[in-house]
């Protein structure tokens, strides 16, 4: 298929063909990434700007590496040292980046919708690296890539996503992506973090983890933001961990060789036990590798133009 988009902002409005095309491209990118000399001239002379308003290690580094492998010049704007800390608005920052003629901007921002806001202003392409609690499309793509790599076609399979779904852009993007590909998705967590209105995403909702584990092919734990306890959303880490923490014992209830995913960074022994995190079932490091491949694919598709490295 011919790639048409200027931006990648959310999975919600993507077609299955587009998702398939990205995953296919990422497969080629992963081969390149696994080479001993991983550097291509494909995007020589293209500039990619990383605009990260939230702290991030893995996502920012992943985008930087992806751009560099493809030969692009990547610039990271560290917001704390920039004019943003002098109170410059996203609107004015966008105009400034526009004037520097960047080809692609990767944005992470704490406000839902900020990626679309930026994309509406810029002629350059925009990739959403996480906007508030709204979307994190590259995470969802690397997750499905990892699942398919391990389990093959996911159509008809069952994925259980555990934890703070209400505040999770990872859960939202995964819900859209997985359901488009025919996966049965269940969100599970306390009612304060998995409220009834999440049904609007088309997924099943549950509050008892043990009852939804049987038959799960994939169990994904979400990072619990520890400050949620202070706002009264759950009483204690102890009780949370007892009810929703992934342990070896509990995971036996899936009655199959399920795989365990986590978007990181983990709170060990809160949402996931040490034993599970370090087990062969957990593909958490593989997710990180695949993340680079997915981001290479997207950068390539958005600004690779007529070059045909993956033809």
């Amino acid at each position: 298929m011919k790639w048409q988009r200027k931006d990648v902002l959310a999975i919600e409005d993507m077609s299955v063909d587009e998702i398939r095309h990205i995953l296919h491209t990422a497969k080629v990118m992963k081969e390149i990434l696994m080479r001993p000399i991983k550097k291509l001239p494909t995007l020589k002379g293209k500039s990619v700007v990383n605009l990260f308003y939230e702290a991030s290690t893995r996502t920012r580094t992943s985008f930087e590496m992806a751009g560099k492998v493809l030969g692009a010049d990547t610039t990271s704007i560290a917001v704390a040292q920039s004019s943003v800390s002098k109170g410059e608005s996203l609107y004015d920052t966008a105009k400034t980046i526009q004037a520097m003629r960047a080809d692609l901007v990767i944005i992470r921002h704490s406000s839902s919708g900020s990626a679309k806001f930026l994309a509406d202003i810029l002629d350059a392409g925009v990739i959403n690296a996480g906007d508030g609690q709204h979307a994190h499309p590259t995470q969802a793509l690397l997750d499905i890539f990892t699942m398919e790599e391990q389990l093959g076609d996911m159509n008809g399979k069952k994925v259980v996503i555990v934890g703070d779904v209400l505040h999770s852009r990872v859960a939202r993007s995964n819900a859209w992506c997985l359901q488009k590909l025919g996966v049965d998705v269940t969100f599970v967590g306390p009612p304060t973090l998995v409220p009834f209105e999440m049904e609007g995403l088309g997924v099943k909702l549950a509050h008892d983890l043990d009852s939804v584990l049987p038959g799960a092919d994939v169990v994904m734990a979400l990072r619990l933001q520890l400050e949620r306890q202070k706002s009264g959303l759950f009483p204690s880490l102890r009780e949370y961990s007892q009810l929703y923490g992934l342990t070896t014992e509990r995971l036996k209830k899936t009655e199959k060789q399920s795989i365990i995913l986590h978007p990181g960074p983990m709170n060990r022994n809160v949402e996931i036990s040490d034993e599970v995190a370090d087990s062969a079932q957990a593909l958490i490091e593989r997710q990180v590798t695949n993340g680079v491949a997915i981001r290479m694919a997207l950068i390539y598709l958005l600004i690779g133009g007529s070059s045909n490295v993956v033809a």
Partner: peptide, 13 residues
């Protein structure tokens, strides 16, 4: 408003 739309958009309701 808190509801299915806010849940979908990830905006606090």
């Amino acid at each position: 408003r808190r509801g299915m739309v806010s849940a979908r958009m990830g905006l606090k309701g």
